[in-house]
Design a protein around this nucleic acid. Structure first.
Length: 350
DNA sequence: AAATGTCACAACCGCCGCCAA
DNA sequence: GTTGGCGGCGGTTGTGACATT
């Protein structure tokens, strides 16, 4: 047999809490702790369901709740965490002291989500929305450069992330991990070298030792492969852009790509957008902290792009004379800025 | 000034995993 | 092993405040 019902639903009050009820609940919990929520309402003299009491306490009356508007840093943290965790509001709230999951969820739905949509970012995938493309701009661009009109790409048929580029980056990361000095000496034309296409190929050049597969190597490669598989799986979600057209359409400012450095972290951390079970241990074991964005840059093909770690406290930013909203919009409009290392010739891979 | 629309957020609903009975 | 309540969670709704027409 199961337990007795927690409460008789009939006759229990619902709806907004009165100050008197709040006071009763606070007084009781301060004296006795909440203990069993099932028995609390009766002991506290409240005609409420235990569940209602629990929600009122955790979402509103708890003394450690931070009230007031979300700061820019908090908002940025929420966006970054959401790009990894999705709608795991409790997990996000756990990393924002003083904020409740309900509060974050509400703020997301009423503020952040709308702002992302307004700036052409899909709040679910954190990637640019294809329907946000300025068709007139594209068409005018195509009129100027008819030969560059690429319908399949406009329709998003081709994946944004070229698999070869991804593979190359993965290999580069492996090599960099094996030999941190390697990339400092590399020449642009060396990226066509098979060495960079396959780190396990002959290592006669670059004074590389043939890698021995240690467990860490295997783990790393598994992570990289998982990452690659996820990107391939999700690539259909991404619109494509043509590097040759990048100067001529609205993607100039919104182009999406991964910075190699961020990519390195992405792969190293084993991030998988579709495997959230990896996220919590990942964050727990990493140096991540909401205020330590320098250690948290999951900017990638599948997540929120890099944001400045110090957008606010830098007096040199252009935010000085802007309202918070303007700052946030401005920030969002630059979300998709990216840098590609000079030594990478993307034309070879796109 | 009234009607209507929009926004913000507290609270509820329903589902799920865990675990006591 | 089964049942069903508890606690937690994410999604949705209700409602008051404010803005716009």
């Amino acid at each position: 047999m199961g337990r007795a019902p927690c409460c008789d639903k009939n006759g229990l009050k619902k709806g907004p809490w009165t100050t008197e009820e709040d006071q009763k609940l606070m007084d009781y919990i301060q004296k006795h702790g909440h203990g069993s929520w099932r028995t609390l309402p009766k002991n506290a003299g409240l005609s409420r369901c235990g569940k209602s009491c629990r929600l009122r306490w955790t979402n509103y009356l708890r003394p450690d709740i931070k009230r007031g508007r979300f700061s820019f840093e908090e908002e940025e943290t929420i966006i970054q965490l959401h790009s990894i965790l999705g709608n795991k509001w409790s997990a996000i709230a756990a990393r924002l002291p003083g904020r409740t999951d309900n509060e974050i969820k509400n703020y997301w739905n009423t503020h952040i989500r709308k702002r992302l949509l307004r700036t052409g970012i899909d709040p679910v995938t954190h990637s640019p929305r294809l329907d946000f493309l300025d068709l007139s701009s594209i068409l005018s661009s195509s009129l100027c450069h008819p030969s560059q009109l690429d319908v399949p790409r406009l329709l998003g048929i081709e994946p944004l992330v070229n698999n070869e580029l991804l593979r190359l980056a993965t290999n580069l990361l492996f090599l960099q991990r094996e030999n941190p000095n390697l990339l400092h000496n590399v020449q642009p034309n060396q990226f066509s070298n098979p060495q960079f296409q396959n780190p396990f190929a002959s290592s006669q050049t670059h004074n590389l030792q043939t890698p021995t597969l240690t467990p860490s190597h295997i783990q790393f490669l598994n992570e990289a492969q998982l990452m690659q598989a996820n990107v391939e799986q999700n690539s259909s979600n991404f619109p494509n852009f043509d590097c040759q057209n990048i100067q001529t359409n609205t993607w100039q400012d919104n182009a999406m790509a991964s910075k190699l450095d961020d990519f390195a972290q992405l792969v190293t951390y084993g991030y998988s957008n579709s495997d959230l079970s990896m996220v919590d241990p990942l964050l727990e074991n990493s140096n991540f902290h909401p205020n330590m964005n320098q250690n948290f840059s999951f900017t990638s093909v599948t997540s929120t792009p890099t944001s400045s770690p110090t957008p606010l406290n830098s007096s040199s930013t252009n935010y000085n004379n802007s309202s918070t909203e303007e700052r946030r919009d401005s920030h969002c409009s630059n979300l998709w800025d990216f840098e590609i290392p000079d030594f990478l010739d993307l034309n070879d891979f796109m």
